[in-house]
C-alpha cells in the first residue's frame, strides 16, 4: 500500500491563507457563493470532529461544518 505521507508531488495550494484574518473576514461578508464557502471553512476550523463526507443520495445541506 502506498503511504500518502511519503509522496511529494506538486498540488495546487489553497486559494486562501486563513491566517490573513482581514482578507478572510472580507471574503466572508455578504451572501455570495464565495462568502458562504469562506464561512464554512472558518466554521470547520473549530469543528472537533473534522469534516465528514455525507451520503450523496440525500438532498440536504449540512451547515454544521
Amino acid at each position: 500500500m502506498e503511504n500518502a505521507s511519503t509522496t511529494d508531488n506538486p498540488t495546487w495550494p489553497p486559494l486562501l491563507d486563513v491566517t490573513r484574518r482581514p482578507m478572510v473576514e472580507l471574503l466572508a461578508n455578504g451572501d455570495t457563493a464565495l462568502a458562504r464557502c469562506t464561512n464554512r471553512l472558518i466554521r470547520s476550523l473549530d469543528d472537533p470532529d473534522g469534516v465528514i463526507s455525507a451520503f450523496q443520495n440525500y438532498a440536504f445541506q449540512n451547515l454544521a461544518s
Binding site: P14, L15, I52, S53
Partner: peptide
C-alpha cells in the same frame, strides 16, 4: 470552492474527507 480554499468536502463526489 471550499476545497479550493483549503477546507474539507462534505459529500461523496469530491474531496478526501472520510
Amino acid at each position: 470552492i471550499t476545497l479550493l480554499l483549503g477546507g474539507g468536502g462534505q459529500s461523496e463526489q469530491v474531496g478526501l474527507s472520510p
